[in-house]
Computed example of a mutant assay.
Amino acid sequence: MLTPEEREQLLHLVDRGKPPARTLTRARILLMADRNTGERHTYKDIGRVLHCHADRISRVCRRYVLEGLEAALYERPRTGAPPKITGDIEAKLVMLACSHPPDDRKRWTLRLLAEQMVFLGHVDSISNVTVYQRLKKTRSNPGK
């Protein structure tokens, strides 16, 4: 399964101990799953030794076979959703939160701020939880 160069690279990686724990575990999985050493370990055996599930071992070995050593060792970059509130929109949110609430209200609520941000056209949609998270990160305190 592994070439001698790949095996040497994995042994060096594990001996060094500097990479993240997930990378080291993947390297150990590949080393134990290597059939060229003469030892035959099942996925259950490897899982018992490395304290991980057989499905994880299967995924690492499959990625090695299909995509190569680098793909098996390291995680793919995660895209994630772009933030809805950027610096410009955050400034508008803080200005709105610091302004006087509508006439029929004593204070701004998170839900009211979210609705007003949509009404003013600053964002297409936003939840009150997102408003809370962004306001929590700022140092503004409209109550004082």
Results as ranks from 00 to 15, higher is better:
residue 42 T to H: 04
residue 81 A to Q: 13
residue 48 R to Y: 11
residue 110 L to T: 06
residue 71 A to N: 08
residue 49 V to P: 01
residue 95 M to C: 08
residue 75 E to M: 06
residue 34 D to N: 05
residue 26 R to F: 13
residue 20 P to N: 12
residue 1 M to T: 09
residue 61 C to E: 08
residue 119 F to M: 10
residue 121 G to Q: 02
residue 28 R to H: 13
residue 82 P to N: 03
residue 91 A to I: 01
residue 56 R to T: 15
residue 108 W to A: 04
residue 43 Y to D: 15
residue 110 L to F: 14
residue 76 R to Q: 12
residue 96 L to H: 01
residue 3 T to P: 00
residue 31 L to Q: 02
residue 2 L to A: 02
residue 141 N to F: 05
residue 80 G to H: 02
residue 53 H to W: 05
residue 130 T to V: 03
residue 74 Y to D: 06
residue 42 T to L: 01
residue 10 L to K: 03
residue 118 V to D: 01
residue 87 G to A: 06
residue 143 G to T: 08
residue 71 A to Q: 12
residue 79 T to G: 14
residue 31 L to T: 01
residue 67 E to T: 03
residue 29 I to R: 02
residue 138 T to D: 10
residue 64 Y to S: 03
residue 37 T to I: 00
residue 81 A to F: 11
residue 88 D to G: 11
residue 68 G to T: 11
residue 32 M to G: 05
residue 57 I to F: 07
residue 46 I to D: 04
residue 51 H to F: 13
residue 11 L to T: 12
residue 84 K to G: 06
residue 129 V to C: 01
residue 66 L to Q: 14
residue 1 M to H: 09
residue 5 E to I: 11
residue 41 H to M: 05
residue 84 K to L: 15
residue 50 L to A: 03
residue 41 H to Q: 07
residue 39 E to N: 10
residue 118 V to M: 08
residue 124 D to W: 03
residue 138 T to I: 00
residue 67 E to C: 07
residue 13 L to V: 05
residue 15 D to W: 09
residue 10 L to N: 13
residue 103 D to A: 14
residue 13 L to W: 10
residue 53 H to D: 15
residue 23 T to A: 10
residue 120 L to I: 09
residue 19 P to N: 11
residue 13 L to T: 08
residue 45 D to P: 07
residue 67 E to L: 11
residue 30 L to M: 07
residue 109 T to S: 15
residue 62 R to K: 13
residue 57 I to D: 08
residue 92 K to C: 06
residue 113 L to E: 03
residue 19 P to E: 13
residue 7 R to S: 11
residue 38 G to M: 02
residue 2 L to S: 09
residue 84 K to P: 00
residue 81 A to M: 12
residue 71 A to P: 00
residue 86 T to C: 13
residue 83 P to Y: 00
residue 35 R to Y: 08
residue 47 G to P: 03
residue 64 Y to E: 04
residue 112 L to D: 10
residue 70 E to P: 00
residue 20 P to E: 13
residue 107 R to N: 09
residue 110 L to Y: 15
residue 30 L to G: 04
